[in-house]
Amino acid sequence: MMSEDTTTKQHGMSTAGYVRIALILAAITALEVSTYYVDFGPFFMPSLMIMMVAKFVVVASYFMHLKFDNKIFSWMFYTGLFLAIGVYVAALSTFKFFMA
């Protein structure tokens, strides 16, 4: 009763593909650090958040194979992640953390 084996299936990315992703991530990091030197004005906070989430999703889906693997893995990981975000944001808001 041989189960279909994940190792034989051709993996999503070639070495060059991974290097390309790594360069993109490095570029985003450089952009993030630039927010420290250049004043982004009102766009400061949103841009930082977007870049952080982008890097997070890129690493999670490409380097950690979530994009190519069974949806159950994504369910497991993102349930934990969104539960953490929801619960802790609610907790901080009772401390009037997000008040202007």
């Binding site: 497991m76 990981f77 349930t79 934990g80 992640l81 539960l83 953490a84 619960v87």
Partner: peptide
């Protein structure tokens, strides 16, 4: 890893 999100969160 899902439960570690809670820890670092």
């Amino acid at each position: 890893l899902g439960s570690e999100c809670l820890l670092f969160g």
